[in-house]
Design a protein around this nucleic acid. Structure first.
Lengths: 351, 351
DNA sequence: CCGATTTGCAGAAACGTTTCAGCAAAACCG
DNA sequence: CGGTTTTGCTGAAACGTTTCTGCAAATCGG
């Protein structure tokens, strides 16, 4: 596919052909001319020349001089992006791209394996106007970007630093909601399947779970807080929890993707859902309706949150001082088919 | 987050600080100096100055003058990317990014809603060195790019034009493999669930299915070729096929994602898998092992194919004339638990 | 020790755009 | 009609790199 060495026409070619200066061409093509007022006749000539030459401005040159790339980066936890892509991630990307289209941005995914130090460099090297960050708590990238004054918004995790813009859900409240639902159904041995240590979302949900248990006078059992980080790990890990003699009668799982992976594994162990074990997920993605049984889940407006985060980033890039740079979305519970009253006989803690 | 207006240090600043010309700085930092030979002492001074100033070259300027962006685009069928992201897509991206890292490329996803005409313009505007295309048959973008001499590789679809580089699997062979397996199990009423009309992959698998049926003397029934384009559509569409009195005893489904979505729906209809209905998927992704029952599927080396396509693209960008610019991967069948011998009594076409 | 070669570096051009400052000509005002 | 403002456009500077050309100084060969 030898690259055809026909030089693409430049703005000079258009200017020459139309018999005007290139400043005029630029003004005509960009419309927004503060200084230059263009006569209708000249504009027509320029347009015609551009059309005939099939002129398309070189975006790199534009970006360089305008100091604006019209590109946003989406930065996930290192390695996360392609390792454990999930329905959740897809929904995030849908929300981001929906807003990006409206604001006129393209999206970039950084895949190069860079050191922590290098990561901030890569983001601030001019090719990108701002970044959406889905990163763990205590990430060194965040203070680095903040210090450099590079526009970013953290989403689906809580901002930790003063002045750090973020969009998150009320995960503590969500944790309470799910736990309260299971308690109301009579469950007492409720396990919380948590995610990564660094995930503020998972940690907040855990906090809500503990808080609700205590406020209802149920003693939390630390052995019922059980980490499963990804759907892949479920077949191997979950049986460890469920084969205990005092196994839980309900699972509150930090993510829909993990919760959905639990169902076939439980079935395989001879445990029916929800007759023997109730499950509550988190996010309430569309797939929750398609599982058998449909998954009860705390609804997080993932699409809207991603959208809002992107718009906030847009405002920050434009140099606006948004009234609210820390946005918290409320949560609510979608009760579906995966939760049922606690089966009295199989619960050793009841008698 | 007012953008700190500290000007980033440029190559001039480094040159001044080190007391050398900027050509020297460039030579030192890039190493590969054909013309310039640098003394060890000068190199040290430059490095030191760069470190002290925390100098990071502006990539835009580099890209402009080098006429190289070190960025690859991944271009899916319009709208596909975020609408129906799936395990398959994730695997594709894993393969692409794996090769991209090795070759030193970043990845870009185009999300802006552009017209067909505009799409080629966006790709060739200088921000990107080459593109990986996952597009339907007869896509107007392809001849456009070919004519402009822009480097691209089509993957997971068959190249149609002369000289068009592509990486695909032997889908006809795969279709025969799956169909033969079901025929061997005694099935005669085998449905083929096909994807989009434009998908060469789905069409080739259909061709293989028809070919194998005929070569075994089984009359193909056109009513058993049934389109379901995405997992979301399964609950609504599949019952139409399976409620017929002469319903098929086996499904050969064009994609794992759709095949996996069929299992709960069939269960819901009271049909056991594989006792009542056998299912064969396509791709044999890792998730096939995690379903209940595990999904029999034609294995397509998605990761390797994506990787190979990316490497081919790399060579095309470098202006090499690769020996083979049309790569076809062979397929094989992974028999798992979702296929079983045909149940004689429930198949009206047998007697 | 003299011419030829190599070494080490600097200045300037180039990449293709946007934007700033300027400048004639035309239009306007009293 | 003389001065001010507006109109319509142009040339040059700027963006921050890489790379080409050139040129002294150092080294080498005999």
């Amino acid at each position: 596919m030898r690259r055809r060495e026909v030089r693409r026409p430049t703005i000079d070619d258009v200017a020459r052909k139309a018999g005007v200066g290139k400043a005029t061409v630029s003004a005509v093509l960009n419309g927004r001319s503060r200084h230059a007022r263009i006569s209708a006749d000249t504009a027509r000539r320029v347009m015609e020349a551009a059309r005939e030459l099939e002129y398309r401005p070189n975006q790199l040159a534009r970006m360089l001089v305008r100091r604006k790339a019209d590109i946003l980066a989406v930065v996930f936890q290192r390695g996360y992006f392609f390792l454990s892509w999930s329905s959740f991630t897809a929904e995030v990307m849908r929300g981001v791209s929906s807003a990006a289209v409206e604001l006129g941005y393209d999206l970039m995914l950084h895949t190069r394996d860079v050191t922590d130090r290098g990561e901030a460099d890569v983001l601030t090297d001019g090719r990108i106007d701002g970044a959406l960050l889905l990163r763990d708590a205590g990430d060194p990238l965040v203070p680095e970007l903040l210090e450099r004054g590079f526009p970013f918004v953290r989403f689906f995790s809580k901002g930790e630093l003063p002045d750090e813009p973020f969009v998150d859900a009320d995960n503590v409240g969500g944790g309470r909601l799910a736990t309260a639902h299971l308690l109301d159904l009579g469950h007492r041995r409720i396990a919380f399947i948590r995610g990564s240590d660094g995930s503020t979302a998972s940690n907040d949900r855990l906090a809500g779970y503990l808080c609700e248990l205590e406020s209802r006078g149920v003693e939390p059992d630390p052995r019922l807080v059980f980490p499963i980080l990804s759907p892949q790990d479920v077949p191997e890990r979950l049986p460890d929890l469920m084969r205990r003699p005092d196994r839980p009668t309900a699972l509150f799982v930090w993510s829909d993707d993990v919760a959905l992976a639990c169902i076939p594994v439980l079935l395989d162990m001879g445990l029916r859902v929800p007759a023997d074990v109730s499950i509550v997920g988190f996010d309430s993605l569309e797939v929750c309706n398609r599982s058998v049984p449909p998954l009860t889940s705390v609804r997080q407006p993932v699409f809207d949150m991603a959208r809002e985060a992107t718009r906030l980033l847009g405002r920050l890039i434009d140099g606006e001082e948004p009234a609210e740079r820390r946005i918290l979305f409320p949560l609510q519970l979608d009760v579906r088919g995966s939760t049922a009253p606690c089966p009295a006989r199989t619960n050793p803690s009841l008698s």
